[in-house]
Nucleic acid binder design. Sequence first.
DNA 1: CATAATTGTAATATTTATTGTTACATATAA
DNA 2: TTATATGTAACAATAAATATTACAATTATG
Lengths: 136, 136
Amino acid sequence: MNNTRFATALHILTLLAYKEHEWLSSDWIAGSINVNPVIVRKELGVLMHAGLVKSRKGKEGGYSLDKNSVAITLADIYLTVKTTDVLGKKNLLPNPKCPVGKDINKKLEGLNSVIDQSVIKELQCKTLKNFAENFH
Amino acid sequence: MNNTRFATALHILTLLAYKEHEWLSSDWIAGSINVNPVIVRKELGVLMHAGLVKSRKGKEGGYSLDKNSVAITLADIYLTVKTTDVLGKKNLLPNPKCPVGKDINKKLEGLNSVIDQSVIKELQCKTLKNFAENFH
DNA sequence: CATAATTGTAATATTTATTGTTACATATAA
DNA sequence: TTATATGTAACAATAAATATTACAATTATG
């Protein structure tokens, strides 16, 4: 991944876990991450869709966790924001007349799914609560 | 990773392993991957620098493995082409006045190195020879 | 009820990363 | 001497990521 989406999502969720049961505004969250509030709202939209977060509109509104922070694992976060494979993109149009070219993408796919499984397994034993407790 | 560098490097090395002890030209390799030959030469430069490949200039020149294909693991390849972390980039400039902001990048770094280790461990038990034998 | 504060989202701009291309100096087998 | 390669720089084109502006819809509170 050559983007900051996991970092942003984890930062957001850590803040929400840190202040569990409070409603935090996207502006306030953006001030901690130091990015544009719209970026935060967009990412929160994705996290809401994944069932990790809920929102409240209007004055005194904001965002809050929709699950206990022990019930959220870093794997949940990874899976909701992941856009590319660990080993990157496949080759676009390898030569089908070449013994290697014709099968390479399928083999890469298999490899990627093995690696992905091991990443997920590793992240599954880490809860958001545990991660958030590192901050003081 | 949101690029094709691992796919390209693995494709190149698979061809070199498939035709071990022959000299393959960047043009020929590029024809199998279906990319510009200069891209291939650039990536081969990186692979040479890592000691995986050697070259011969001039007519009848080309590229060849510089190690037996059983002595090259997919981890070697991954480590030579890897440009970003599995979980992506850190936040650029988180707020140092926030308890979360001031430490998040260090925690992310730790997390990334744990995950990276598990990816490498997984790839270390896969040899290029074994991978290349899948093609016919 | 009126106001202020907030989410949700579209449209667009800007910046950064990736990939492709052209050109040519240098090397070497035949 | 010629044809065919590598090595690499400079630049062009495309794609991805991030930032910004704007505003409709919502809601607590005085």
